[in-house]
Design a protein around this nucleic acid. Structure first.
Length: 270
DNA sequence: ATGGTAGCGCTGCTA
């Protein structure tokens, strides 16, 4: 309803909240001061009937959510409308159960997807194989339903560090997931379609991380990875005016604990 | 080399 009076800038954000139930106070706090128009969330860890619609509504956001309960779960909150919501890869039933890792909707004229790529755990493993299969399915889904000239943005926790400058110490990741050539090739496939890493387009520096392990004081020691990405088609990427990882959200007291991911947002001058 | 923490939910799994 705000769309007719909206400023020409659209602020789109992505945040792996690591349980929306546990993180709701921080998400509300962040919406109030960061004022994103669209927020894609991952790892909500909520069944659909548990989703806290009211707190978002009170802040002026409509929500669409796709959860399964204990694990995974993605959602989109928007104050510029949310239409044509699709949970998963297709509006049609899947032949077998599929984890809740993808949903898409049109918000203020932009097709927005919220993705939570499987972690992969280790190499080799069945989990890693499933990660690569899921990424291949994403590429197929992008090509089947979209054109490079569309206004499309994929937001989410990709669980891939695109380059060595996106991890704190490449030597520590030899043979590990998140940096392997097949995973990075899956990202490259999306880029060949015409998607652009919006944050990296603005900032060239290494160590611009979005995730830090909870353990061993990794955040305060600067041991992180840049694995939360926003991939935009060229017409949108050309409109980016600035972008930020809000590391303040990675800090917090025990009674209002942080996610292990910080929110990432960018502004589009549409 | 290992373990370190957090969330869910109650035992161990996932990250």
């Amino acid at each position: 309803m705000a769309s007719t009076l909206a400023s020409p800038v659209m602020r789109i954000a992505t945040w792996n909240v690591n349980s929306l139930k546990a993180r709701l106070p921080r998400v509300e706090e962040w919406l109030e001061y960061a004022q994103p128009d669209v927020l894609c969330m991952q790892e909500t860890k909520l069944a659909d009937e548990q989703f806290p619609v009211m707190p978002f509504s009170a802040l002026g956001y409509e929500v669409a959510f796709h959860g399964e309960g204990r694990w995974n779960g993605v959602a989109i909150a928007s104050r510029v409308g949310i239409e044509d919501v699709v949970a998963g890869f297709s509006p049609h039933p899947e032949p077998e159960p599929v984890e809740a890792r993808l949903m898409s909707a049109t918000c203020g004229g932009v097709r927005v997807a919220s993705l939570y790529v499987p972690n992969g755990r280790s190499i080799p493993s069945e989990h890693y194989d499933r990660k690569l299969e899921w990424l291949a399915r994403v590429a197929g889904w992008v090509k089947e339903h979209h054109q490079p000239t569309d206004a499309l943005v994929l937001c989410g926790d990709f669980n891939i560090a695109p380059e060595d400058r996106d991890v704190y110490d490449p030597k520590k990741f030899v043979g590990a997931t998140h940096v392997s050539p097949p995973e990075r090739e899956a990202l490259a496939e999306l880029c060949r379609f015409g998607l652009i890493d919006g944050f990296r387009q603005l900032y060239e520096d290494p160590r611009l991380f979005t995730w830090w392990d909870y353990r061993a004081g990794d955040f305060h020691s600067g041991r992180g990875m840049r694995i939360d990405l926003m991939l935009l088609t060229e017409p949108l990427a050309k409109q980016i005016t600035w972008a930020l990882v809000d590391r303040n959200m990675r800090k917090g007291p025990k009674d209002r604990p942080p996610s292990d991911h910080a929110p990432l947002f960018l502004d589009l001058d549409l």
